[in-house]
């Protein structure tokens, strides 16, 4: 089935969508309503939100796994309720958080299952199908993995296999529910890169939910923000930062989204200042380490402690305490320990 996306019809769009669960006895439990979002072909969109905000529910509703509780979802120009399960398999492919553990299944076999909507009654693969599987494995960087058992590859590789499965399904839209949840940082970055590349090069619409805020900020074309009791916010990451949406969204006690660095900071109660002299990368990391101890770096002439960073030749940190004595230190660890020591003796004096 071809999706009619001619004109300016987005791949997926919602109109006043309500999501939640239909409980047999307790009736509807609406998690979120009034959702108006759209996703174009070739766009890489990250859905962010705290746990329990309904990210999975939204994704599952958009994929047609669970019924919507109000409003409308359009895939191209068709409403989702008019699309059969069978047709849906040609429009949206999914990758789920769940680890797939099936013993005795090869990578090739698993990716082949993505051809299910196209194969015949017994699921026999034609040569063209096998070639598509091969191409998809190449696209996700897993050539040579065909005969490996899926129980004997890493979690990151397994998610790439699932992405290859989604590719051979040849759908215009790919939806991924926290695909990087189990993975280590390098694998997360790799997967996000891969997905963005696929979106841009193959003109796929890719929607994924994630908790990796900084990765999403760097890589997503658009970000959807979902939180309980708030309207859904969408836009490019930069717009959301500049309009303070991020800050407002993640506002919690003691946690602040820093609009300058694009990172979360843990707010400290008492802020002591420390004079920090230095430059470049050392300055950045020393001030970070000091911030962890509750010191804000400043240029004030004197504020109790002074740290001078010598970065020519070998690295040295000169610490001048309130007593006026100067210590020469080799590492940030020593520096922090010295500061603790000085502070303690200063208080006892």
């Amino acid at each position: 089935m071809q999706l009619n996306v001619s004109g300016n019809q987005p791949l997926i769009s919602t109109n006043n969508l309500s999501i939640g669960y239909n409980h047999p006895r307790q009736g509807k439990h609406i998690l979120h309503s009034g959702i108006n979002v759209k996703l174009e072909a070739g766009e890489f969109v990250c859905l962010l939100g705290p746990n329990g905000s309904g990210k999975s529910t939204l994704l599952q509703t958009l994929c047609g796994f669970i019924p919507m509780l109000g409003g409308e979802v359009f895939l191209g120009d068709r409403t989702i309720s008019s699309i059969s399960n069978r047709q849906m398999s040609l429009l949206v492919s999914v990758v789920l958080t769940e680890r797939i553990v099936v013993s005795n299944m090869t990578v090739f076999d698993l990716v082949s299952l993505g051809r299910t909507p196209y194969t015949g009654f017994f699921g026999r693969m034609k040569h063209s199908d096998a070639r598509k599987v091969q191409d998809a494995l190449t696209a996700v960087g897993l050539e040579g993995f065909e005969e490996r058992m899926i129980t004997n590859i890493s979690d990151g590789e397994r998610q790439k296999v699932m992405i290859a499965k989604a590719l051979v399904q040849e759908t215009p839209l790919i939806v991924l529910d926290e695909p990087t949840a189990f993975l280590d940082l390098p694998s997360r970055i790799e997967i996000m890169h891969l997905l963005r590349k696929l979106a841009h090069e193959r003109k796929k619409g890719i929607l994924l939910s994630t908790h990796d805020l900084d990765l999403a900020l760097q890589m997503a074309d658009k970000i959807w923000l979902l939180a309980e009791g708030k309207d859904m916010e969408t836009g490019t990451p930069e717009d959301l930062v500049l309009s303070n949406e991020f800050r407002r969204f993640f506002e919690r006690e003691g946690i602040l989204f820093d609009n300058n660095t694009g990172q979360f900071t843990v707010g400290k109660q008492q802020v002591k200042t420390i004079r920090l002299i230095g430059k470049g990368i050392e300055y950045k990391w020393v001030s970070r380490a000091l911030a962890r101890r509750g010191f804000a770096a400043s240029d004030e002439p004197f504020s109790g402690f002074k740290v001078e960073i010598k970065s020519d030749g070998h690295r040295e940190y000169l610490l001048t305490g309130p007593s006026g004595k100067t210590h020469k230190l080799r590492s940030i660890e020593d520096l922090l320990a010295r500061i603790d020591h000085e502070e303690a003796s200063f208080l006892t004096d």
């Binding site: 796994f65 099936v102 299952l113 299910t116 017994f122 699921g123």
Partner: peptide, 23 residues
């Protein structure tokens, strides 16, 4: 023998199977 295809897909679990067009 007539259920070979759905059986294969069901190895991935119901959600994946449903997404692959299996009733």
């Amino acid at each position: 023998f007539f259920l070979v295809k759905p059986l294969n897909v069901m190895l991935l679990g119901e959600q994946y199977a449903g997404n692959l067009g299996v009733n």
